[in-house]
């Protein structure tokens, strides 16, 4: 398994390493595809990429998003109610990739990929310029087809590790991931929280110990000071709900403003200007 991991050129790894070299914590931002419209979701993601995000996660709206809290649920169910179709995800990825240097990943519940067929999905994603998939409800044990398809099309695969994960499972997640490991900072669903969970540092340390070269922390992160704190131990910080709220209240421009602000927290101490 490690062999194939090394033969694929990982664009996500490259983006995170470039941030590190520049003295920054990689900034990773999530936005739902098609929210509030397909056009504005493209504008918002472009604003994210052009204001300091290193990696963009395009979330695919799904009818049963068990890992999402109320803000993201409200956004994605609105998109679905408006008649969103999966095909537009590839158009969005393509448009965003063309207009920013940030690396574009897709975040999706697995049934969406399963329905299309993992090979077809991976091929279309790769043709659109996407770099990989984050899979919140897929564990490595069920991912046999995805390993094959991601190797075939040169895509990154981001699995999650949680505060509850056993050492054995962390090792499995680390060995299965390519790009980075997504460290879930709290036992809970997505949603902005006022403080970074005390469990986050532990989650990251355990993944690093298990051999992960890159670990990003997600869930509950909404402010520059959160990112500054996380940057002391993690390689990347993932912001979702806060960006979705900004988009809801202020449109794509507000996403740009918030991203620029968050990016100030990504500059590491002593990195110079």
């Amino acid at each position: 398994m490690t062999e194939t991991v090394n033969t694929v050129h990982s664009r996500t790894s490259e983006a995170i390493e470039a941030a590190r070299a520049a003295g920054r914590t990689a900034l990773i931002g999530y936005l739902p595809a098609g929210y509030p419209t397909v056009e504005d979701s493209i504008e918002a993601a472009v604003a994210l990429g052009n204001n300091g995000a290193d990696v963009i996660e395009i979330g695919i709206p799904y009818s049963d998003p068990v890992m999402d809290g109320p803000v993201i649920q409200a956004a994605t169910s609105q998109v679905l109610a408006d008649g969103f179709r999966i095909d537009s995800v590839f158009d969005i990825v393509k448009a965003v990739s063309a207009r920013t240097d940030a690396v574009v990943l897709v975040m999706t519940y697995w049934n969406i990929v399963d329905r299309m067929g993992v090979d077809t999905f991976a091929r279309r994603l790769s043709e659109a310029g996407g770099a990989g998939i984050i899979t919140p409800d897929l564990v490595p044990e069920e991912a046999g087809d995805w390993f094959e398809a991601s190797d075939r099309y040169g895509l990154d695969r981001v699995f999650l590790t949680a505060p509850s994960s056993t050492d054995q499972r962390i090792k499995l997640v680390v060995e299965s991931s390519r790009g980075f490991v997504y460290g879930v900072s709290v036992m809970g669903v997505t949603g902005a929280r006022s403080e970074v969970s005390s469990a986050a540092e532990q989650v990251v340390a355990r993944a690093h110990e298990a051999g992960a070269p890159r670990v990003a922390v997600g869930l509950g992160i909404s402010r520059p000071e959160h990112i500054r704190e996380i940057g002391r131990y993690a390689d990347g910080a993932i912001v979702g709900t806060a960006l979705v709220s900004a988009l809801r209240d202020g449109g794509p421009a507000a996403v740009g403003t918030l991203t620029a602000e968050l990016a100030t927290g990504a500059v590491r101490d002593g990195a110079g200007a």
């Binding site: 409800d137 897929l138 564990v139 069920e142 999650l160 949680a162 997640v173 036992m187």
Partner: peptide, 14 residues
């Protein structure tokens, strides 16, 4: 069948 679940819940299922 199988176990198509978020990683956070796998330890509990085990």
């Amino acid at each position: 069948g199988g176990r198509w679940m978020p990683e956070s819940l796998i330890a509990a299922l085990e």
